[in-house]
Design a protein around this nucleic acid. Sequence first.
DNA 1: ATTACTAGTAGACGAGTAA
DNA 2: TTTACTCGTCTACTAGTAA
Lengths: 222, 222
Amino acid sequence: MPDAGDLPVLKAIALLGGCRGPVRVSTQSLSTTLGTSPQTISRRLKSLDSAHLITRNVDPSGQSVEVTKGGEEILRREHAEYCRIFSRTGGHFILKGAVISGLGEGRYYMSLDHYKNQFRINCGFEPYPGTLNLRLIQQSVPVRKKLDSLEWTTIPGFSDEHRTFGEARCLSCRIQGIPCALIVPGRTHYPEDIVELIAGVPLREELGLEDNDIIEVEIGYD
Amino acid sequence: MPDAGDLPVLKAIALLGGCRGPVRVSTQSLSTTLGTSPQTISRRLKSLDSAHLITRNVDPSGQSVEVTKGGEEILRREHAEYCRIFSRTGGHFILKGAVISGLGEGRYYMSLDHYKNQFRINCGFEPYPGTLNLRLIQQSVPVRKKLDSLEWTTIPGFSDEHRTFGEARCLSCRIQGIPCALIVPGRTHYPEDIVELIAGVPLREELGLEDNDIIEVEIGYD
DNA sequence: ATTACTAGTAGACGAGTAA
DNA sequence: TTTACTCGTCTACTAGTAA
């Protein structure tokens, strides 16, 4: 969660191509495009840097700045919200990937009453304790990115006496007709070719899946 | 030019459907979704209201809010910038519309040296003093809206001793192969089915156009 | 329950300056 | 030219209160 005023600066850097590689900027140039003072830009850049949303190389003649994965994620989410406002086009997406073994963390989280209830309310099924992890085929990675534009449900986090549990986003989908949900834990930086799924039934058993089996996930949005 | 902090509030209203009709909100509900205080929301709503970006009906049980054309335009521009960051897809668009008579304002502006030079630099031709106005056919109106996502060039305004002249945006296009540019004056609220074009030659003469002739404008983006 | 005022405070801004 | 510090000002915030 960057400071509200940092976002325009991040966006300006991205518009200059900062998501694709380092771009040279100066506090002055950014200040004119954003209609503020160089001092403020300097402060904002420092803030973005310490929030790990950009990386930079400062030298006496200026600085070259690059947007990090985390920064791009924030921009992508912002983009998704605007898409939701204007493009109310439905869509149908297919993700294809290979079954892989997760770390078993999903099983633990899904066993917690809080998440169980939340998913029951939001997805229409009580999650089987355990998640199915897929490594997407290369062609599905851009499709996965597009999904960020759809309307994900946010599952709030909670905390007990020992620790806090983060929020997560989920999106309904189907695998061979079985209702499932893609879930993305709150703040973790997932590899972009990995997705995690939950369902009301043990998917591996139900579909007879083994590691490396290729399956399709269907996201219908209507 | 709304206050920077107003934008998230405007966006939140739009996400609730405020672009399509009035939505009921409360300062409290918005404050939780935006992570701020109800007081701030109250102030922001007032600010958006007085900037004519929203209209609202306040009653003792809450308020219903709707995003105005002007508000939508700001959001659409924001959306366009994010599109420019992420979707670097080219595209090819055709606008179809009927030739109509403008107010002759375009002729005046295009006769000013400042604009002449700017357009020469940015569009590759010195604009013939006079603009061609089109009333788009209905099917072209949504296409026109999509164009906002493309990379328009901003022509800065200027001021002489008497008055100030606003900025404008332009986008290269072609009519029957002749290089032209769509131009949109800075802050005016154009009817969404009207577009204005400039070229290096007198288009009406060159193409033998009369009022109500239907022509096609080609926007190729590469 | 609302909205929106007032008041006090915290923090952001930009001018000036140094490196 | 840069970046980024300090510092005084002023804006924007939230708490409290009224309607």
